[in-house]
Simulated assay, not measured.
Amino acid sequence: MTLDKRLGLRFLPYGANYLDWPDMHELRAAIEHGVLFRYQTETESVASRLERRVGERLGAGHVLAVHNCTEALRLALVSTRPRVGDVVHIPAVTFVAVAGAVLSSGLIPVLVDVDDSLSMDTSLIPEGAQRAIVAHMEGTVAPLPDGVPYVIEDSAQALGATFPDGRHTGTRGYAGTFSFHHNKVLTSGEGGLLVTNDPAAWETMRCYHDHGSARVPGRYPTWNEDAYYGENLVTSEAVAAIQYQQFRHLDEVLSGLERHHAIAMDDLPERSGLDLLPRAAGDVKISLRFRCESRELRDAAVTALTERSIANWTLNKYLLPDHPVVAGRRSLYADGFPWNLAPDKTLALSRDGFARTRDLLDRTLCVPLSPELSEAEQALAVKSVRQALEAA
């Protein structure tokens, strides 16, 4: 593959570039075993091995593998034993799956405006709030609100990120969720992880995720005497095996991103009206985030990069106040559930109706970094980005 091709609009970002058949030892073993349901085998499942490895790597007391991060969010919410119609404070800038997880749990999302880094402005959360989901967007470590008993960290885009105290994102709140979707740090196409340090919460989560009972490996199905209804959120051995292979390369991916980011910081574009947003030491450097002086300059930069086949994206699609699900209170239920449970509740917390946030998003541009490239290739990639942006 030529360098130009590797630096172009790649559809296999980050961990996908480390998928390799000779490295798929766990997947081969699972297939040769002939059992792809984790609770059907009397030996230790690949999913259990994955959970143990993740717990050790992230410093999490308990880990549960599920189908995707949206399910992990719902599972975390349900484990707090809410009442239908309870509110959950979520950032106004994040993927719609966060709002969807809240709504599909029978709860009401309250949008909280963001700060200049596009992280939730925790100063807007009212006293007495019970539940909040904080999204660590674009690998940026977001602050957690104080005084909220159930803080769920959405670390879908921040696997490997750390707080200043050294703890990993996802491990400081009540629970943390991670995604292995195709364009995340690591990938299994789909796949999610849920972590918590609360033993009681863990027991609730692992029961609810498999029809309300804690399974005994090799003796499926068995039922707890105190079983309650749940769902089938159990991952498969095949997906867990790919995640395990990916986890083997996490440090390699993170160090490659750090190196590419450092090279970019030493060769910034000389272009007025274009600033590179700073990254904290613990952030996962999945992209360069530029703040332009105007929407027109942002659009010109997008055009210049795209014409040179350099991958880039904008963030306007993450503004939840403008999403049909939220703006139109969309629901498949005939009575509008669960929106109908909160007709008079304030569903947004912003000082200016999100005007400042819209302006920030209109002027923000992201360019991905490539951990799999050699140092020399990364330097060439940075040069290409610089030349494109200086020509915009």
Rank of each mutant, 00 (worst) to 15 (best):
E252N: 11
V66D: 04
G166K: 13
T306G: 00
R291F: 08
L276C: 06
A135N: 11
S370R: 15
N197P: 02
S236A: 04
T177F: 03
I242C: 07
N197T: 10
M24L: 14
A301V: 01
E190T: 13
S287L: 11
I286K: 11
T2V: 03
S45L: 04
D146I: 06
R298Y: 01
S331A: 14
Q157C: 04
Q40R: 13
A60F: 11
P371C: 14
P221W: 14
Q40N: 10
V385D: 06
A355N: 11
R279Y: 06
S350M: 09
R74E: 12
H33P: 00
L268P: 00
G147E: 05
E237I: 07
P278L: 04
L144K: 08
L50Y: 05
L50W: 06
D20T: 01
M1A: 14
H249E: 14
Q378N: 03
L186P: 01
L50F: 14
V253Y: 09
G218F: 02
Y14G: 03
C292T: 15
V148M: 05
T187M: 11
V88L: 04
L233C: 07
T357V: 06
A175R: 06
R351E: 15
I310F: 03
T303I: 00
N316C: 08
R215T: 06
A280H: 14
D362F: 00
V98Y: 00
N340M: 01
G273H: 12
T204M: 10
L276W: 08
L268W: 09
L250Q: 07
T357W: 03
R206Y: 02
Q387N: 05
S370N: 14
A29M: 03
T364N: 13
E56N: 02
C69S: 13
T364D: 15
D352A: 15
A60S: 09
T122P: 03
A200N: 03
F354N: 06
L103V: 11
G170Q: 11
R329P: 01
E51W: 09
A135Q: 07
G176T: 05
P221L: 13
M120N: 07
R363P: 03
E375R: 15
Q157I: 00
L297D: 05
A388K: 03
A241K: 07
